[in-house]
Amino acid sequence: MSALLTLDNVWLEYGDKIVLERVDLDIAEGSFISIIGPSGAGKSSFLRLVLGQEAPSRGRILLDDRPLVAECGPDRGVVFQRYSVFPHLTALRNVMFARECAGARFTARLFGRARRAAEEEAAAMLAEVGLGDALHVYPAQLSGGMQQRLAIAQALIARPRVLLLDEPFGALDPGIRQDMHRLILRLWREHGLTVLMVTHDIGEAFKLGTRLLTFDKRRIDPHAPHRFGATAIYDLALKPHVLPADTAAGAEPDADVITIDIIGNNREK
């Protein structure tokens, strides 16, 4: 199976401070990667690299076997913990944004038939994430969970090759978080998405991911802690999980679906 996203000996350094070192990863299409690790272990830096917000100081990143341009583009979608949606646009216009940018170079606005088509597509996408009743509402009027639903719909309509989630459910109530887990798993399955999700919640990481990466520093020099960077120290394949909806239908319960693959686990390079 050829990898969708390849990181080949990637380093990220600021001056003499090493943030990430020797990151070697192949990420298969259709996988759901959970990324955990302590604060300051380079999880967000890793996401920024894949997003193209920063360029690696060494090594290369390939997306679909082509070197990744160090600039954000429509092949990678993203949902942040906050500020992911545009506060000045209604839900519908937020989701139409990608279509409008693609359809009208200069005005970034669509008119007539093209506009109606985009509106229908956006409304369908909003209905899919459960915001079918909130088409003409501004984000400030939506709850935190609904704003994240909107942000996901907005990202999905651009049909990204990879969807990057940066602690997307970190600010939500536990109950809402369960709903969001169900939603993201359903979308992941139905749209055949490849997802990279950074999270602080280990339970969430095991529950959602098909593969779990743990970022941390392999070694620490007590006199110069900045001289060793973090890398993926654990790389566990998780058994493909079942949706909570399936559980009700008699499938195995959630807690038992986690198995740890020992291949490549804690491997010294």
Binding site: L51, A151, A158
Partner: peptide
Amino acid sequence: EQLVKAQTLGASSWQ
């Protein structure tokens, strides 16, 4: 985050 999001949705500098 908003600027990054817009770029991942395909927006040019002008857009």
